[in-house]
Design a protein around this nucleic acid. Structure first.
Length: 421
RNA sequence: GGAGAGGUGGCCGAGCCGGCUGAAGGCGCACGCCUGCUAAGCGUGUGUAGGCUAAUCCCCUACCGAGGGUUCGAAUCCCUCCCUCUCCGCCA
């Protein structure tokens, strides 16, 4: 969330960014509420000060065995008044909180203002698209020929969007996960964490998924728990409500988790095969950094993600998202789009974002700076990468005319000696 | 799931038959002094948030797991919930 004081002092900027992000936060109502709340707070503080002062007098009188009944009866009405105001005050702060949580992060000045994904900018391209001597097939056809997936039985045991990976498909999926984890740990110096796949409401609010995306989450009623839509949620919240010493910053974490998304409202869009799933695997990088460094680190993290595609020799381009296509909490986002020759298009396999202090303020993650002052950290995260579409890209880019696929060199150590499937 | 104990400041740890306790004492840390050599001693300081303010000084308010209640007044009493530990049960 944004700092209330910042919102108060930059009303126009905040309103503009709400608009640019296609959000609906009512800033005027928020400001109005904020004024009321502060007024109530002021009144409350003063009355409490009075109450505290007189209470001390009463204590003294009692100590000296003097009569305090006059003061006591006076204080009764004050106590009643304080109670009334404190009810108002907590109502006001509760609704103010809900308002503040609906205000999106301010996009960085380098982000293009635009309505939707059509206005994103390609900022670089990598790799050569392979020339095929035959017509490349789509991944669904390749997977079927090689028995890598069992979409039908996945749908039977759970529902559509819950794929089953079979035999070499399962091995390839696991190889991808392990390859990515090892790569980030060994080449980029990340520290692996294994985290719960189910989190509570506070955690889901900390990273900004709630309240906006509640309908997109799988929810467990009895405990008010949520299945994580990304490892970003549990990993970023690891340090919620903590003040980190400077020597713990920067922090580079990487985690593999499955991700669960209801994808409400996106039915029928890109649903073929593994393109859009309710459960999928992802390796996620999360970083906690000093506010001065986050823009440099964003570039670095994007490279970290790109290097996975480079190691797999998969052609891709990098998009800088426009304001309208960025997520609620992000200040700037790069998407990595991998080329898939069968379907003849680019698929998003990674999203790398700088959240500045937006998530840190929500989750209350702070650092003690060199001067001893306490500040919010900056958080960033990036997929490195989501496996299903990487899986698709491997099938389609590495396919042979006979329907087999060649294993990319980078994955060979993880494939039990196989060079082809 | 059953029984018991407990959750206090960076850490340890008092307070818990309500009233100068935002919180003793110790450790740690910072600065200073002294001394001089990889130490000890002495002094001072050392939470977060909001308000006030030119101000990181004062001053006011809130916070002793979370949320309610009783009271003029609660870390201290009552209720609900959460978590940790020990024992038992169950189980990978």
């Amino acid at each position: 969330m944004l700092d209330l004081k910042f919102i108060r002092e930059n009303v126009d900027l905040v309103k503009q960014s709400v608009k640019n992000k296609n959000e609906k936060a009512d800033i005027d109502a928020l400001i109005n509420l904020d004024e009321k709340k502060r007024k109530a707070q002021f009144e409350f503080d003063n009355l409490r000060a009075e109450q505290n002062r007189v209470s001390k007098e009463i204590a003294l009188l009692k100590k000296e065995k003097k009569d305090a009944s006059e003061l006591l009866s006076e204080m009764q009405s004050l106590a009643t008044k304080i109670k009334e105001i404190s009810v108002d005050l907590s109502d006001l702060s509760a609704s103010l909180d809900t308002y503040v949580l609906t205000v999106p992060n301010i996009p960085h000045s380098s982000v293009k203002i635009g309505k939707n994904e059509e206005e994103n900018t390609i900022i670089r391209e990598w790799g050569e698209k392979r020339e095929f001597s035959f017509t490349p097939k789509e991944h669904t056809e390749i997977a079927e020929g090689l028995n890598l997936l069992d979409i039908t039985r996945g749908a039977k045991i759970t529902g559509s969007g819950f794929p089953v990976y079979t035999k070499h498909g399962a091995l390839l999926e696991r190889a991808l996960i392990n390859f990515m984890l090892d790569f980030h740990i060994q080449k980029h110096g990340y520290c692996e964490v294994m985290v719960p796949h189910i989190v509570n409401r506070q955690t889901m609010t900390g990273t900004g998924q709630l309240p906006k995306l509640e309908n997109d989450m799988y929810h467990i009623n009895e405990d008010d728990f949520f299945l994580i839509p990304t490892a970003e949620v549990p990993v970023t919240n690891l340090y919620a409500n903590e003040i980190l010493p400077l020597d713990k910053i920067p922090q580079k974490l990487v985690a593999y988790t499955p991700c669960f998304r209801r994808e409400a409202g996106s039915y029928g869009k890109d649903t073929k095969g593994l393109q859009r799933l309710h459960q999928f695997n992802k390796v996620e990088m999360v970083r906690f950094v000093h506010p001065d460094d986050s823009w440099t680190i964003l570039e670095e993290m994007c490279q970290d993600a790109e290097e996975i595609l480079q190691a797999l020799k998969l052609p891709y381009h990098v998009l800088s998202l426009c304001t309208g296509d960025m997520s609620f909490a992000s200040a700037k986002t790069y998407d990595l789009m991998v080329w898939v020759p069968g379907a003849q298009k680019y698929l998003e396999v990674s999203s790398v974002s700088n959240f500045t202090d937006f998530q840190a303020r929500r989750a209350n993650i702070r650092l003690r700076d060199a001067d001893g002052k306490v500040n919010f950290v900056h958080t960033l995260n990036g997929s490195g990468l989501a496996t299903p579409r990487t899986f698709i890209a491997i099938l389609e880019n590495y396919q042979n005319e006979d329907g087999s696929i060649t294993i990319p060199d980078a994955l060979l150590p993880y494939m039990h000696g196989m060079t082809r499937i």
